[in-house]
Measured scan of single mutants.
Amino acid sequence: MGKSNSKLKPEVVEELTRKTYFTEKEVQQWYKGFIKDCPSGQLDAAGFQKIYKQFFPFGDPTKFATFVFNVFDENKDGRIEFSEFIQALSVTSRGTLDEKLRWAFKLYDLDNDGYITRNEMLDIVDAIYQMVGNTVELPEEENTPEKRVDRIFAMMDKNADGKLTLQEFQEGSKADPSIVQALSLYDGLV
């Protein structure tokens, strides 16, 4: 993909415009910024974590950033290329609610087996709590990752089998306004 070129080839721009919710001009602008920050044309896990640390200076986002990195890194080569970056950004910032929920499901399904187990969710929720640090005051019933996961599973795990399917996750998330709101945070920002 033209590693350190400051412009993408027209056919690449066209393809990314088809695969995302961005215009050709927006794709070019994002590429310019991506190459400025990642001259090699790729972003590794350490660089990704560094970006998260800028956004969450009062907590430790390392663990959460690693989980997000793994979802962005579609081809699992340990690096995020621009096409992976822009497609994930498109879903998280401008995707439909169902697209965002499928993306979030992939984030929580750490072993990619098609289910979110209690332990997988606990890993992610714990990482989120570490990331936000003491900057967020949580209600008593959610002031630990374990309590939050218990509440989520009580609401979403309809067949009580200890794991969530994509359908259970989507339906449960849509029924909880706070989850829908959290997924909409990026709307309109890009």
Rank of each mutant, 00 (worst) to 15 (best):
L89A: 00
Q54T: 00
Q87A: 02
F85P: 02
E81P: 01
M131I: 09
F105H: 10
G2R: 01
L110Y: 00
L89K: 13
K53I: 01
V12I: 08
F105N: 00
V12M: 08
E120L: 04
G95F: 02
I51C: 12
P177L: 08
F58P: 02
T92N: 13
P10Q: 05
F22D: 02
P177N: 00
F153E: 03
S184A: 13
L189T: 13
Q49Y: 09
S178P: 13
D126F: 08
F105W: 01
I116H: 09
K36W: 12
L101N: 05
D113N: 09
F82P: 02
M156E: 07
A88V: 14
G41Q: 14
A45D: 07
E15N: 05
S6N: 02
S93P: 11
R79A: 09
K158F: 08
Y129W: 01
Q29F: 13
F22P: 00
K7E: 06
F69G: 14
F69P: 01
I179T: 12
I152S: 03
I116C: 02
E171A: 07
A154F: 08
K19G: 07
A65Q: 12
T135Y: 10
Q87I: 07
Q28T: 12
L101K: 13
T144L: 09
D109N: 07
T20F: 13
P139G: 03
E24Q: 08
G172R: 11
K100M: 12
F153D: 05
E81K: 08
I128H: 03
V12W: 07
Y115K: 05
L97V: 04
E99S: 10
K3E: 05
I152T: 08
A65Y: 10
R148F: 11
V136I: 10
K63W: 02
D187Y: 13
D44E: 13
G172L: 14
Q170F: 09
E99V: 13
F58A: 03
E120V: 06
F105S: 07
M121V: 09
R151D: 07
K3R: 05
D44L: 00
G114V: 06
D98P: 09
M131F: 03
F34Y: 02
E15Q: 03
K50V: 06
G33V: 10
W103C: 04
D123Y: 01
R148G: 07
M121N: 02
P177S: 13
V125T: 11
A88E: 10
Y21P: 02
F72R: 11
G59I: 08
S40D: 09
T17F: 14
F69L: 11
A154L: 04
W103Y: 15
G33F: 03
I116N: 03
K9S: 00
A104P: 02
Y31R: 15
Q49E: 05
E120S: 10
E14L: 11
F58H: 11
L110V: 05
N5V: 12
D77W: 07
L43A: 01
L101C: 00
V27G: 15
P10L: 13
